[in-house]
Design a protein around this nucleic acid. Sequence first.
DNA 1: TCGCTTATTGACACCGTGTCTATTTACACA
DNA 2: TGTGTAAATAGACACGGTGTCAATAAGCGA
Lengths: 191, 191
Amino acid sequence: MSSKDLTTRDRILNAAWTLLESNPGVAARMSDIAKKAGVSRQALYLHFPNRTELFIAVTRHQDAVFGVQDMLAASRAAETGEERLRAFITAWGNYIPRIFGVAKTLLVMSETDVDAAQAWNERMADMHEGCAAAVTALARDGVLAMDETEAADLLWTLLSIPTWEYLTRLCGWPQERYLSEITRLARLGLC
Amino acid sequence: MSSKDLTTRDRILNAAWTLLESNPGVAARMSDIAKKAGVSRQALYLHFPNRTELFIAVTRHQDAVFGVQDMLAASRAAETGEERLRAFITAWGNYIPRIFGVAKTLLVMSETDVDAAQAWNERMADMHEGCAAAVTALARDGVLAMDETEAADLLWTLLSIPTWEYLTRLCGWPQERYLSEITRLARLGLC
DNA sequence: TCGCTTATTGACACCGTGTCTATTTACACA
DNA sequence: TGTGTAAATAGACACGGTGTCAATAAGCGA
């Protein structure tokens, strides 16, 4: 059994991950997570102070499993600004579907939960930095056609999780079309 | 007193409106709404079956007060497709800030509440229709540079409430800049 | 004054989170 | 083999918030 050799903490993280992914935006119940992990409800509180912190730990776990750092590092290695923009959009755009369920839940919770809000804001700030860096690369190449700050804001919005959700989940666009359209729109809008 | 001559139902609607507006995304407590309306908590249940239906009634109330129909009718009267697109973006883009608090709450709730989800989806479907109509007008003028359905989806996403929230609330853009940038991006992306 | 509607009051069931305590299981070490 | 310690369980509980219910009161038209 794949879950037998895992630590209790990891089994809890995986159970929460699965439930959040299967129902994006809905904060799974502690009792359901416990059941799925094959553990008592109280065991969750032995490893995490509360539900919010558990969910935050899941996002960190995902980042570690998927190796976000490496993903984004690739885009930083690009030669030209335009190539860097393309790589950044591709990397992040392909990351969203993998984290969507958990991220959406955290996004929803951040409206009412200060801890969730802080964790979410940090994530968003990181993303914005990435956008700003890509924009700066464009500016250095002299191809940026607008204010740097505004351009970063715009790119950040185009690459937001809600935008991805609208186009792929609600409009039914395949991931490929999402990527190509966002890339096209970003280049048109910024350059 | 302005609230003295209103019906109890209207005072409840106004109280809920105020609270939702003052804390977008957070579903106000029934007891707080009652207190603000100067009415007992149980009185709310005399006029609305539950909290979700109360909030939905608030959005209908807003639409009536603001006269959405008239607003959107103006954009339908435009001569050219491009003029219609511009008018539609302006009308809707200026409507969002007026309804943001309530709409955001309904959006958040729709993740867990089926009634809220249905009401929200209807609203979104209406918006999508409006986008499709504007796109069709562009196509009729022969200035549309992409598939009609895709164009409508794209416009709908650009005009979504999350997009507005990202640019104005999170990035701090003034409403004017939001309008001009979205208009520019829509024209670039569609034509 | 009667009868009807509207509103109030207080109590209650229900659900889910987070806390606490007593108890059990598993395992390392002597 | 026993003992100590950490990890986990079981069960009970407080709390906050929604929605329900029943009894009562207030306003008002006929």
